[in-house]
Amino acid sequence: MAATLAFAGCQTSANSHWEQIGAGPTLEYANAQCSIMSASTQQGLVALGSPSYVAGAQLGNALGNAIRQAQFMKDCMVLQGWKQVPNAKPAVAKTAATTSFKPNPEIAPNMMAWSSANNKCMAGDKDACARKVVLAAKLRTLGVDIGV
């Protein structure tokens, strides 16, 4: 939950741009320098336990690393004389499509079942491999492409 809240405040290059706020190198140079240094924010992980616990720990570690790296890049770019600012937002007319979206409740349980079947399949369970294929087809009908 905390990672979701942290990401909600992040600006991406799709909805923001960099503006020079002081003396410093060009945007390309500053970005390259900060990008190289941001590799030091990555933290490793050792997790022992069930496959689902290890997968959860890896996901949490990856989210934490991404948050640390994004914050480092933002701070480093400010030190280089650049600030990330949001793009102007175009006015959007409210329509029924933008105000009445309801997520499909079938997606999450099918994703969990596919993940479980995938883990068992990788361990050599042939029945789980067949179930994984069926679940992948079901997920595709729900609009989710898991790349299988």
Rank of each mutant, 00 (worst) to 15 (best):
M73H: 06
T141D: 15
V85T: 12
A137S: 10
A117W: 07
P109D: 13
A62R: 05
M1Y: 15
T26S: 12
S115T: 10
P25L: 09
P105Q: 05
C121A: 08
N31W: 08
L5P: 03
A97V: 13
T95Q: 02
N65E: 09
V92Y: 06
K132L: 09
T12V: 08
P103W: 01
Q69V: 04
M112C: 06
I21W: 04
L45N: 01
A70G: 09
I146H: 01
K102D: 01
N65M: 07
T41N: 04
A2W: 03
T141E: 15
K138V: 08
N87Y: 08
K83C: 09
A47C: 02
C34Q: 06
D125L: 03
S100M: 09
Q11E: 10
A93F: 07
M77W: 05
M37K: 14
G49C: 04
E19W: 00
E19C: 05
K74L: 06
L5C: 13
V46I: 12
A93S: 12
F7S: 06
G56R: 07
T4A: 15
S38D: 07
G143V: 13
L79M: 13
K138E: 03
N118R: 02
A6Q: 12
L27P: 04
N61A: 11
F101C: 04
L142K: 02
G24M: 03
L59S: 15
K132E: 03
N31Y: 11
N110Q: 08
V148R: 01
V46G: 10
T95K: 00
A8C: 08
S115F: 05
R68E: 13
S52M: 14
A55F: 07
N15H: 08
A108C: 02
A130W: 06
K120Y: 04
A91P: 08
K89P: 05
L142S: 11
S50L: 03
V134N: 14
G22A: 12
C129T: 05
L142E: 11
M73N: 14
V54E: 09
A55E: 03
K132G: 09
N119V: 10
R140Y: 03
G22F: 04
T4V: 14
L27E: 11
G56Q: 02
A123N: 00
P51I: 04
A97P: 01
A39Y: 11
N31F: 15
G143Y: 12
K94A: 12
M112V: 15
K102C: 08
L135F: 03
L5E: 15
G9D: 08
K94S: 11
V148T: 10
N61P: 01
N65T: 15
A14C: 03
G147Q: 02
S50I: 00
C76G: 13
D145L: 07
M1A: 15
V85R: 00
L59R: 15
A23M: 02
I107W: 05
A136Q: 10
A66V: 04
K126H: 01
